Amino acid sequence: MKKIICLLILLTAGIGFSQNDDTTGELQGVVFNTSDESVMGNVHVLNLNQVIGTITDDKGQFNITARVNDTLYLSYIGFKAVKVRVTNDMIKYQNTKIGLTELAFALEEVVVRPYQLTGYLDIDSKNIPINQSARYSISGLNMGYEAGSRNPNAFSNILGSIFNPADFLHNLFGKKPQQMRKLRKMQEDDKIRSLLSSKFDRETLMALLQVDKLDIEEILRNCNYSDGFIETANDLQILDAISNCYEEYKVLNRNK
Protein backbone atom coordinates (compact mmCIF):
# COMPACT_ATOMS: atom_id res chain seq x y z
CA MET A 1 0.00 0.00 0.00
CA LYS A 2 2.83 2.37 0.90
CA LYS A 3 4.47 1.62 -2.45
CA ILE A 4 1.26 2.54 -4.31
CA ILE A 5 0.93 5.83 -2.40
CA CYS A 6 4.57 6.74 -3.12
CA LEU A 7 4.06 5.94 -6.80
CA LEU A 8 0.97 8.17 -6.97
CA ILE A 9 2.89 11.03 -5.33
CA LEU A 10 5.72 10.70 -7.82
CA LEU A 11 3.31 10.61 -10.77
CA THR A 12 1.48 13.68 -9.48
CA ALA A 13 4.76 15.55 -9.02
CA GLY A 14 5.88 14.54 -12.50
CA ILE A 15 2.64 15.81 -14.03
CA GLY A 16 3.04 19.06 -12.11
CA PHE A 17 6.57 19.63 -13.42
CA SER A 18 5.47 18.76 -16.96
CA GLN A 19 2.66 21.29 -16.87
CA ASN A 20 4.97 23.90 -15.38
CA ASP A 21 7.46 23.48 -18.23
CA ASP A 22 4.71 23.94 -20.84
CA THR A 23 2.82 26.80 -19.18
CA THR A 24 0.68 28.70 -21.66
CA GLY A 25 -1.15 31.88 -20.81
CA GLU A 26 -1.78 35.55 -21.44
CA LEU A 27 1.45 37.42 -20.82
CA GLN A 28 1.13 41.04 -19.66
CA GLY A 29 3.99 43.48 -19.79
CA VAL A 30 5.07 47.12 -19.96
CA VAL A 31 7.61 48.63 -22.35
CA PHE A 32 9.63 51.68 -21.30
CA ASN A 33 12.38 53.92 -22.62
CA THR A 34 15.63 53.12 -20.79
CA SER A 35 16.91 56.69 -21.09
CA ASP A 36 14.15 58.31 -19.02
CA GLU A 37 11.99 55.32 -17.95
CA SER A 38 8.95 56.77 -19.72
CA VAL A 39 6.39 54.26 -21.03
CA MET A 40 6.27 53.65 -24.78
CA GLY A 41 3.10 53.28 -26.82
CA ASN A 42 2.80 51.73 -30.31
CA VAL A 43 5.70 49.32 -29.73
CA HIS A 44 5.28 46.18 -31.82
CA VAL A 45 5.48 42.95 -29.80
CA LEU A 46 5.72 39.67 -31.72
CA ASN A 47 5.75 36.11 -30.43
CA LEU A 48 8.17 34.50 -32.88
CA ASN A 49 7.13 30.96 -31.93
CA GLN A 50 3.36 31.44 -32.03
CA VAL A 51 3.58 33.91 -34.97
CA ILE A 52 1.19 36.42 -33.40
CA GLY A 53 1.63 40.09 -32.66
CA THR A 54 0.25 43.01 -30.69
CA ILE A 55 0.98 46.70 -30.01
CA THR A 56 1.48 48.49 -26.70
CA ASP A 57 -1.17 51.01 -25.64
CA ASP A 58 -0.56 54.60 -24.54
CA LYS A 59 0.48 53.29 -21.11
CA GLY A 60 3.13 51.04 -22.65
CA GLN A 61 1.14 47.91 -21.75
CA PHE A 62 0.60 44.83 -23.90
CA ASN A 63 -1.07 41.41 -23.66
CA ILE A 64 0.04 38.46 -25.77
CA THR A 65 -0.44 34.68 -25.67
CA ALA A 66 2.82 32.90 -24.85
CA ARG A 67 4.36 29.68 -23.60
CA VAL A 68 7.44 29.25 -21.46
CA ASN A 69 10.58 29.46 -23.66
CA ASP A 70 8.76 31.36 -26.44
CA THR A 71 10.70 34.34 -27.79
CA LEU A 72 9.19 37.83 -27.89
CA TYR A 73 10.53 40.35 -30.41
CA LEU A 74 9.97 44.03 -29.63
CA SER A 75 10.64 46.80 -32.11
CA TYR A 76 10.05 50.53 -32.43
CA ILE A 77 11.39 52.99 -34.99
CA GLY A 78 14.55 54.68 -33.70
CA PHE A 79 15.12 52.07 -30.97
CA LYS A 80 17.19 48.91 -30.87
CA ALA A 81 14.96 45.85 -31.29
CA VAL A 82 15.22 43.24 -28.53
CA LYS A 83 14.41 39.55 -28.08
CA VAL A 84 13.10 38.31 -24.73
CA ARG A 85 12.69 34.65 -23.73
CA VAL A 86 9.46 33.96 -21.84
CA THR A 87 9.97 32.43 -18.38
CA ASN A 88 7.60 30.86 -15.84
CA ASP A 89 7.64 33.91 -13.58
CA MET A 90 6.75 36.26 -16.46
CA ILE A 91 3.48 34.38 -16.99
CA LYS A 92 2.82 33.76 -13.30
CA TYR A 93 3.46 37.25 -11.89
CA GLN A 94 2.67 39.40 -14.97
CA ASN A 95 3.54 43.08 -15.57
CA THR A 96 7.02 42.27 -16.82
CA LYS A 97 8.96 45.45 -17.61
CA ILE A 98 11.01 45.51 -20.82
CA GLY A 99 13.27 48.42 -21.72
CA LEU A 100 14.16 49.63 -25.21
CA THR A 101 17.29 51.67 -25.90
CA GLU A 102 17.23 54.55 -28.36
CA LEU A 103 19.58 54.38 -31.32
CA ALA A 104 21.95 57.28 -31.96
CA PHE A 105 21.98 58.43 -35.57
CA ALA A 106 24.64 60.71 -37.05
CA LEU A 107 22.78 62.65 -39.70
CA GLU A 108 24.88 63.72 -42.66
CA GLU A 109 24.13 65.70 -45.78
CA VAL A 110 22.04 63.69 -48.23
CA VAL A 111 22.56 64.29 -51.94
CA VAL A 112 19.52 63.65 -54.12
CA ARG A 113 20.84 64.99 -57.42
CA PRO A 114 19.85 61.96 -59.53
CA TYR A 115 16.15 62.72 -58.93
CA GLN A 116 16.46 66.52 -58.48
CA LEU A 117 13.98 66.57 -55.59
CA THR A 118 12.64 69.93 -54.43
CA GLY A 119 10.89 69.02 -51.19
CA TYR A 120 7.43 69.69 -52.65
CA LEU A 121 5.43 66.46 -52.89
CA ASP A 122 3.38 67.44 -55.96
CA ILE A 123 6.52 68.22 -57.95
CA ASP A 124 8.77 65.45 -56.64
CA SER A 125 6.17 62.73 -57.21
CA LYS A 126 6.35 63.51 -60.94
CA ASN A 127 10.17 63.48 -61.03
CA ILE A 128 10.76 60.13 -59.32
CA PRO A 129 11.09 57.39 -61.95
CA ILE A 130 8.58 54.54 -61.91
CA ASN A 131 9.77 50.94 -62.15
CA GLN A 132 8.40 49.74 -65.48
CA SER A 133 9.13 46.07 -64.80
CA ALA A 134 6.07 43.87 -65.19
CA ARG A 135 5.26 40.65 -63.37
CA TYR A 136 3.86 38.00 -65.70
CA SER A 137 3.42 34.25 -66.10
CA ILE A 138 3.82 31.78 -68.95
CA SER A 139 1.34 29.03 -69.75
CA GLY A 140 2.66 25.69 -68.59
CA LEU A 141 4.98 27.18 -65.95
CA ASN A 142 4.02 27.59 -62.31
CA MET A 143 6.65 30.28 -61.68
CA GLY A 144 6.08 34.00 -62.22
CA TYR A 145 8.64 36.35 -63.79
CA GLU A 146 9.49 40.03 -63.64
CA ALA A 147 10.84 41.55 -66.84
CA GLY A 148 12.05 45.00 -67.82
CA SER A 149 15.21 47.07 -68.01
CA ARG A 150 16.06 46.31 -64.36
CA ASN A 151 15.93 42.56 -64.96
CA PRO A 152 17.73 41.74 -68.26
CA ASN A 153 18.24 38.07 -67.34
CA ALA A 154 14.54 37.20 -67.35
CA PHE A 155 14.80 35.07 -70.51
CA SER A 156 17.65 32.94 -69.16
CA ASN A 157 15.77 32.55 -65.86
CA ILE A 158 12.76 31.21 -67.75
CA LEU A 159 14.90 28.66 -69.59
CA GLY A 160 16.50 27.62 -66.31
CA SER A 161 13.09 27.05 -64.76
CA ILE A 162 11.94 24.96 -67.71
CA PHE A 163 14.92 22.60 -67.55
CA ASN A 164 15.51 22.64 -63.79
CA PRO A 165 12.39 24.06 -62.09
CA ALA A 166 12.96 23.34 -58.40
CA ASP A 167 16.66 22.70 -57.72
CA PHE A 168 17.65 26.38 -57.72
CA LEU A 169 15.42 27.03 -54.65
CA HIS A 170 15.88 23.72 -52.85
CA ASN A 171 19.01 24.82 -50.99
CA LEU A 172 17.27 28.02 -49.88
CA PHE A 173 13.87 26.80 -48.72
CA GLY A 174 15.17 23.36 -47.72
CA LYS A 175 17.33 24.90 -45.00
CA LYS A 176 14.41 26.36 -43.06
CA PRO A 177 11.29 24.24 -43.69
CA GLN A 178 9.78 24.90 -40.24
CA GLN A 179 10.37 28.63 -40.46
CA MET A 180 8.91 28.83 -43.96
CA ARG A 181 5.73 27.17 -42.70
CA LYS A 182 5.20 30.31 -40.59
CA LEU A 183 4.61 32.38 -43.72
CA ARG A 184 0.89 31.64 -43.87
CA LYS A 185 0.41 32.49 -40.18
CA MET A 186 2.28 35.75 -40.71
CA GLN A 187 0.03 36.65 -43.63
CA GLU A 188 -3.13 35.92 -41.65
CA ASP A 189 -2.21 38.06 -38.63
CA ASP A 190 -3.49 41.60 -39.28
CA LYS A 191 -1.23 43.18 -36.65
CA ILE A 192 1.88 41.59 -38.15
CA ARG A 193 0.81 42.74 -41.63
CA SER A 194 0.24 46.26 -40.32
CA LEU A 195 3.69 46.28 -38.73
CA LEU A 196 5.44 45.02 -41.86
CA SER A 197 3.66 47.51 -44.13
CA SER A 198 5.44 50.37 -42.35
CA LYS A 199 8.93 48.82 -42.29
CA PHE A 200 11.67 48.64 -44.91
CA ASP A 201 14.63 47.28 -42.91
CA ARG A 202 13.85 43.51 -43.14
CA GLU A 203 14.74 43.13 -39.43
CA THR A 204 11.34 41.78 -38.37
CA LEU A 205 11.28 39.35 -41.30
CA MET A 206 14.76 38.12 -40.41
CA ALA A 207 13.68 37.53 -36.81
CA LEU A 208 10.46 35.71 -37.76
CA LEU A 209 12.01 33.53 -40.48
CA GLN A 210 15.45 33.18 -38.85
CA VAL A 211 17.25 34.07 -42.06
CA ASP A 212 19.60 36.95 -42.79
CA LYS A 213 19.11 39.79 -45.24
CA LEU A 214 21.28 38.19 -47.91
CA ASP A 215 19.13 35.05 -47.77
CA ILE A 216 16.00 37.14 -48.34
CA GLU A 217 17.54 38.89 -51.33
CA GLU A 218 18.79 35.58 -52.76
CA ILE A 219 15.34 34.01 -52.43
CA LEU A 220 13.71 36.89 -54.30
CA ARG A 221 16.32 36.98 -57.06
CA ASN A 222 15.96 33.25 -57.61
CA CYS A 223 12.21 33.80 -57.83
CA ASN A 224 12.90 36.34 -60.59
CA TYR A 225 12.07 39.57 -58.75
CA SER A 226 14.00 42.58 -59.98
CA ASP A 227 16.64 44.47 -58.01
CA GLY A 228 14.34 47.50 -58.12
CA PHE A 229 11.60 45.63 -56.29
CA ILE A 230 14.01 44.14 -53.74
CA GLU A 231 15.47 47.56 -52.93
CA THR A 232 12.23 49.58 -52.70
CA ALA A 233 9.47 47.22 -51.48
CA ASN A 234 8.26 47.42 -47.89
CA ASP A 235 8.52 44.38 -45.63
CA LEU A 236 4.89 43.36 -46.22
CA GLN A 237 5.44 43.27 -49.98
CA ILE A 238 8.62 41.24 -49.41
CA LEU A 239 6.67 38.83 -47.15
CA ASP A 240 4.00 38.30 -49.80
CA ALA A 241 6.65 37.81 -52.51
CA ILE A 242 8.54 35.20 -50.45
CA SER A 243 5.27 33.45 -49.58
CA ASN A 244 4.18 33.28 -53.23
CA CYS A 245 7.63 32.03 -54.20
CA TYR A 246 7.51 29.34 -51.50
CA GLU A 247 4.06 28.17 -52.64
CA GLU A 248 5.32 27.94 -56.22
CA TYR A 249 8.38 26.03 -55.04
CA LYS A 250 6.23 23.51 -53.15
CA VAL A 251 4.09 22.88 -56.24
CA LEU A 252 7.12 22.41 -58.47
CA ASN A 253 8.89 20.24 -55.90
CA ARG A 254 5.79 18.07 -55.46
CA ASN A 255 5.49 17.47 -59.19
CA LYS A 256 9.18 16.84 -59.70
Rank of each mutant, 00 (worst) to 15 (best):
K2Q: 06
K2N: 07
I5N: 09
I5S: 11
I5G: 04
L7R: 10
I9V: 12
L10K: 07
G14H: 05
G16M: 03
G16D: 00
S18K: 00
N20T: 13
D21A: 14
L27H: 02
L27Y: 02
Q28T: 15
G29Q: 02
V30I: 15
F32W: 02
N33Y: 10
T34S: 15
S38Q: 14
M40K: 05
H44A: 13
H44D: 05
L46S: 07
I52Y: 05
G53D: 02
T54V: 09
T56V: 09
D58I: 00
K59E: 15
G60L: 03
G60I: 02
F62S: 02
N63M: 09
N63Q: 07
I64D: 00
V68E: 07
N69V: 03
N69A: 10
D70V: 09
T71D: 07
L72F: 06
L72R: 02
L74T: 03
S75N: 13
F79W: 09
K80L: 11
V82Q: 07
V86E: 02
T87Q: 10
T87I: 02
T87V: 04
Q94V: 03
Q94R: 05
N95F: 11
T96Q: 13
I98Q: 01
T101W: 06
E102F: 01
L103K: 14
F105I: 14
F105Y: 12
E108M: 11
E108V: 07
E108I: 06
E108Q: 14
E109Q: 12
E109P: 01
V111A: 06
R113Y: 13
Y115R: 13
G119F: 13
L121N: 06
L121W: 11
I130M: 13
Q132L: 11
S137N: 13
S137C: 06
S139P: 00
G140C: 06
M143L: 01
Y145G: 02
Y145C: 01
A147H: 05
S149T: 09
N151V: 05
N153C: 04
F155R: 08
F155Q: 11
G160F: 02
I162F: 08
N164G: 08
A166F: 10
F168R: 13
F168W: 00
L172P: 00
L172G: 01
G174R: 11
G174M: 12
P177C: 06
Q178Y: 08
Q178K: 10
Q179L: 11
R181N: 14
R181P: 02
K182Q: 10
L183I: 00
R184E: 10
K185W: 10
Q187N: 14
E188N: 14
E188Q: 15
D189F: 07
I192G: 01
I192V: 11
R193S: 09
S194D: 12
S198Q: 15
K199W: 12
D201W: 10
R202S: 07
E203P: 07
M206T: 12
V211I: 15
V211C: 04
K213V: 13
K213M: 12
L214P: 00
D215I: 12
I219P: 01
L220G: 01
L220Y: 04
N224A: 08
N224D: 15
G228L: 08
G228A: 07
I230Q: 06
E231T: 13
T232W: 00
A233Y: 05
A241Q: 03
S243A: 15
C245D: 02
E248P: 01
V251A: 10
L252C: 03
R254N: 09
K256P: 00
K256E: 08
K256N: 14
